[in-house]
Amino acid sequence: MIQVKEVTKRYGDKTVVDQLTFTAHPGQVTGFLGPNGAGKSTTMRMIVGLDTPTTGEVLVNGRRYAEHAAPLQEIGVLLDAKGVHPGRSAANHLLAMARTHGIPKKRVDEVIELAGLTKVAGKRVGNFSLGMGQRLGIAAALLGDPGVVMLDEPVNGLDPEGVLWVRNLLARLAAEGRTVVLSSHLMSETSLIADHLVVIGRGKLLADTSVASLVAQAAGGGVKVGTPATTLLGVLLAGPDVTVTPAGPEELIVSGLDARQIGQIAADHGIPLFALTPQTVSLEEAFMDLTREAVEYTSSLELAR
């Protein structure tokens, strides 16, 4: 479990993370979403103690990261797939990390095989593609068989087969009862993997919700009704929580009633309908709505520079 508690991080007078609070629970995949520059990477660095929060506290499995006797067993992280010495082989990179914790060579071989790197394990990392680097980073994250796995943009640079591999791997890790966190700036990709979503923008929490409820929320756009009798139907549908908006000569947008209720009322009064469509917003659009302000702020800042 990861607990981020009212964490603020300032660099000079720039606030990168602002009073952020969320919890990533065991047994589920938490998607950590936000536009580029929202503070995701900074938050992840604070979780493993690379950066110190200006105020607030981050706990991994109930303790500060540095206080654990075997940090690699508590949480495995992939922060930067390129953060490996290019002159060292993949196997030696993993072995050097393993030795700090007395992890046996056998486990190194296991994660190499798990990540599908057996053939290239002896090659220098400098010759690796981005996708192979991601696989090495994931292998390193799994080295200590950790209870929490946290990956920053893990599918970045992977081919479709690799993306599927990561998706299945993360689902399996969560099913084993581990806490899984992955960050992304892509809603569509994340919604396929994640059970829970934490969305941030400008360092602030924008949403802490399940994928299902975000979908439901996104679907709250009303129902489009096509009928020749717009005026009559409008009167019949009217009610305290119902809004009816004309959208064209033979079209209405109705919110407050679902398609089934509208269809029933129309049928009861013999009114013909030729369209009855729930207005869904895609997850990507919902995400964009949620983060629009944050993105605009970032852009205008960049323009001002």
Partner: peptide, 20 residues
Amino acid sequence: TMSLSRRGVLAGEWTKFSTL
């Protein structure tokens, strides 16, 4: 039985040093 130790850190650093 895994744990972080000074000896482990020394062994890990030696591995890094000797594999370049």
